[in-house]
Every structure is written in structure tokens, then in C-alpha cells.
């Protein structure tokens, strides 16, 4: 019998703790498959964040370090400087990367640190229970924005990919989504390109993945996928913002 689908060696057998309908599991799988396909697992060192993906070190089947909240890019900098030949990645949510870790990600990009950041944007703090994130959409309800985000009070959501794409040494920046199969396939391609650009020593690489949080959005998994498509993508346009060919 032909094998149609097999679990990647890039993931351990540990059962994910993620909520039903959360897309972290898909994104983990894509990153792990890419590392396996590029033969990077035995030289990969990942950095897990604080937030929903805090246990990522239990799931990725490679060396891992757990970082303090927002500090994954600084930790990854230390690792990659020690082992320049290794494949280093950070896996960070939007509270971690766009709020408390904003300085670390900007300066890692500025220095052109040669690692790959998987930036999972679900427009909310998931682990702590649905608080407003820098990426929460205007009008979107959160436990610290019970009437919905008010732009006059809390500003407008941060577009991280667009911001980082202005940094010369951020050589690969792409925003993708995982709300349907077509986009999942595109997301994997982007993640693969990012790792390839890293291994070619081009500079800092980041893939922003729009993701769902049914639990804290108060929606079913299916409603969540639809909400992402109809609300997040218009504000966070998908596409490639930087690729190595652009670098002169």
C-alpha cells in the first residue's frame, strides 16, 4: 500500500496541548517538515517563546532552548554566533514578538542575524487568556479591551512584516496564512524559502503566519478560519515583502 502521508521526523511523539481548532499544530508541522526536507534536523537549534507555544521544545525533534518572554531573537543571536553552521529558528507569537520583544526582533533584523523567525499572529494573547495584543484588530474584543479595541485609546494594530521589510538586512519577509489547504501549501513554501535563505547566509528571515485562536476569539474552529480570512487578511495582506533576489 502506498504511503500518502506520514508524520514528519521533525516532530516528537508528544501530544500537542493546543486547543481544538488552533492552527499552531499545522504551523509546527510545516516547520518540522521543512527542516526534515532540507535535512536540517541534526543541525537545528530552535528557540521556544513564552505564550501558547511555550512547550514547543517538547514538540520539535531537534535541540531547543526556552527563552524569556520576547527575548527569543536575542537568545537565537547568541546561539547562531556560537554555531554559525547550524539552522537556528525562533517560534514566536504576536504578544511575544510584537509587544515585549519588539526591540529584540527589530535589532536582530537590523544586524541581519542569520536565523529564521516563525511569527505566529493570531491577534490576541492566547496563553494568558485573551488579552489585547499589539496586533488585535480595531473593534476586536479582548479581556483587556472588553468593548473592542479603540484606536483612539490603544492605537492601530502593528503590521510587523511591513515594518521589518524596511530593514535592509531582513532579506526574506513573507506573510502567509493557514486558513485553508491552498494557503497552508503556500505557507510551507515560504517557510522553506526562509530556511534556505538562512542556510545560504543571506541575512535575517521571517515568515508571519496568520493563525486562529478559537478559544479566546469565542468562535468555533470553522468560524475562526472564516473570521481570519474575512477580517485579518484585509488588514494584514498576504504576500512576499522581501526576498533574497532583491538584495543587491
Amino acid at each position: 500500500m502506498a504511503v500518502i502521508f506520514d508524520k514528519t521526523k521533525g516532530l516528537t511523539d508528544k501530544t500537542f496541548h493546543y486547543c481544538p481548532g488552533c492552527t499552531h499544530g499545522i504551523i509546527h508541522r510545516l516547520v518540522a517538515e521543512v527542516m526534515e526536507e532540507l535535512n536540517l534536523l541534526d543541525k537545528a537549534i530552535g528557540v521556544a517563546p513564552v505564550g501558547c507555544a511555550v512547550f514547543a521544545y517538547d514538540y520539535f525533534n531537534c535541540d531547543m532552548q526556552e527563552a524569556a518572554h520576547g527575548r527569543a531573537p536575542a537568545v537565537a543571536t547568541g546561539i547562531k554566533r556560537v554555531h554559525p553552521e547550524s539552522a537556528v529558528f525562533t517560534y514566536q507569537g504576536d504578544g511575544d514578538l510584537a509587544s515585549i520583544g519588539a526591540a529584540e526582533i527589530v535589532h536582530a533584523a537590523m544586524r541581519g542575524e542569520k536565523f529564521t523567525t516563525i511569527f505566529v499572529n493570531n491577534a490576541i494573547y492566547g496563553m494568558t487568556g485573551g488579552q489585547m495584543a499589539p496586533t488585535t484588530l480595531v473593534g476586536q474584543k479582548a479581556t483587556t479591551a472588553p468593548l473592542g479595541r479603540d484606536e483612539n485609546h490603544a492605537g492601530l494594530p502593528l503590521r510587523v512584516s511591513e515594518m521589518l521589510a524596511t530593514i535592509p538586512k531582513a532579506v526574506f519577509v513573507e506573510r502567509v496564512s493557514v486558513h485553508d489547504v491552498k494557503h497552508i501549501i503556500q505557507a510551507k513554501k515560504a517557510i522553506k524559502k526562509a530556511f534556505q535563505a538562512q542556510m545560504a547566509g543571506k541575512g535575517f528571515t521571517l515568515v508571519e503566519v496568520l493563525s486562529t485562536c478559537p478559544t479566546n476569539w469565542g468562535k468555533t474552529p470553522l468560524e475562526s478560519l472564516k473570521w481570519l480570512e474575512e477580517n485579518m487578511i484585509p488588514y494584514y495582506p498576504l504576500g512576499n515583502y522581501r526576498s533574497p533576489e532583491e538584495v543587491r
Partner: peptide
């Protein structure tokens, strides 16, 4: 490798990463 970090917070976390990677830092 000498690296001027963007803050003391980043510097000590670079130390964390490098120490975890086995270096004298």
C-alpha cells in the same frame, strides 16, 4: 565574537543563548 546588543536585556539573553550553545561567554 564581540557584539554590542541593543540593550542590557538583550545582552544577557544573548549570553543565555551562547551559554546554552556551550560557549564560554
Amino acid at each position: 565574537c564581540f557584539l554590542q546588543a541593543e540593550s542590557e536585556v538583550a545582552a544577557i539573553n544573548m549570553v543565555y543563548g551562547a551559554a546554552g550553545a556551550g560557549a564560554r561567554v
